Amino acid sequence: MAAAGFFFSLTALVILIQLATSLNSCLAATPVHHSGRSTRFIRTSCQTTLHPNLCFTTFAPYATRIRGSPRSLATTALSLALNTTRFATKSVASLSKRHGLKRREAAALRDCVQEVGDSVDELKDSITKLGLPSAGGSDFRRRMSDIQTWVSAALTNDDTCMDGLSGKSVNRILKTRVRRRVVKVAHLTSIALAFVNRYAAAATHK
């Protein structure tokens, strides 16, 4: 009886191992959510930007929605840059109202809020204009030129904000907190500009 019980247990163990092996093989063969042509498009597009790693980790979750469309990629990039810029504006505005700030620190933060706030408006205008029905010829080129100008201006505003914090008048810890937020905004805006430029070039040469 003991021998029969041992044989039964050994047989059951072998079956469980086989089932586990089969399950692991199935899971390995199942494509992940971001696999396929759409993700390859994101990866290839991100290689043309100044921040390819940040770009890929940011846009890979949207690969299925973007579906290899340069226009959709540009629109998504502008939207994410806008959302991040809005968050940064609110965050820096909150820091600028803290008690105990030196006069120069408060002034530098207020200037930064103004600069980044302008970026919000420019990105909003860009998204609105990019969302208009497609039109060819000079109308399209003029529209894309406006968008490129606005996004470039938003990127310049981010740089101006960070330049204003570069002096010794701003506390190092405070400066680091602000720069961390604005640098991310600048990087995403830079990526958005690259994708806008790519879409404009691709559409113009059709």
Rank of each mutant, 00 (worst) to 15 (best):
T39A: 09
S138M: 11
Y199T: 03
A63R: 00
W150V: 00
D146I: 02
S119A: 07
C161F: 02
G164E: 04
A20C: 12
N157L: 00
R43Q: 12
R103F: 05
D118K: 01
T156P: 01
V92G: 02
T76D: 10
R142N: 05
G137H: 03
H34I: 02
K129T: 06
V183R: 12
S72T: 04
I17D: 15
D118Q: 02
A153F: 15
I127E: 13
S96N: 08
R110K: 06
R67D: 14
T89E: 08
H51D: 15
V178H: 03
S38N: 13
F7R: 13
R40S: 15
K90H: 08
D111T: 07
D125M: 15
D159Q: 14
A203G: 11
K90C: 03
H34K: 04
C161A: 07
A106P: 08
R40Q: 14
T48S: 13
A74C: 08
Y62Q: 13
S94I: 00
N157R: 00
G136E: 10
L155C: 09
L155R: 04
L109N: 01
F56K: 03
K168W: 02
R86L: 11
A4F: 10
T49Q: 02
R172C: 01
F7Y: 12
F195H: 08
F140E: 09
